[in-house]
Amino acid sequence: MTDAEIEALLLSLRIALVAVAGALPFAVAVAWLLARTRFPGRVLLDGLVHLPLVLPPVVMGYLLLVSLGTNAPVGGWLLETFGIRLVFSWTGAALAAAIISFPFQVRAIRLAMEAIDPGLDAAARTLGAGPLDRFFSITLPLALPGIIAGAITAFAASLGEFGAIITFVSNIPGETRTLPLAIYTAIQSPGGEAAAARLAGLAIALALAGLILSEAAARRVRSLSGS
């Protein structure tokens, strides 16, 4: 493998990791809101969360570009106030991956939370546990298998994201050229078939490793939670 290929691999892993870890707290919060509360606008939130699932990723990337580009209101404000520039940077790629993979996380966590017997929450109340206490001592640990499953699925989706990333942050070697973008670039260049095959093999290996890891983690958590 060439240095550029290793670079693409490491960059992909970093972007996916940051995307998943950054989105996780929000995913848990949104999943809890959808699973356990009733409020006006709940349906709207549900729809908004699932939007990246049904929208073409290119459209998602375009929307990010027009809202977070340096000339756009939010993007300009971020640049002026914090010196943060998302376009053409790997952090922008992580943001795009996070948004695209957000529904996967929310879905898995929400299903896990909905499967928790609400009676346990009532029992914890009669034992003196307040809302925040109950969330951390009952809801979160019991939703852990779902959180792990969601994180792994989202990680895989982030690794594979192409359209939103290339639209929003372009295809810059060493900065935003992730594995799928590198494969695309290799295919486009004359004599790049061998590189494309190597990178594709790498992607397959990563996906399999993710599946095995996810299964092992789920098994471990199930035995810990006694269910």
């Binding site: 346990l120 009532a122 914890a124 109340r125 009669t126 034992l127 009952i138 019991l142 269910s227």
Partner: peptide, 16 residues
């Protein structure tokens, strides 16, 4: 959670 009233449920509701 602040009533200090204990409750034993029919289906026990132990934390799994």
């Amino acid at each position: 959670e602040r009533r200090q009233i204990g409750y034993v449920f029919q289906e026990s509701r132990l934390f799994p």
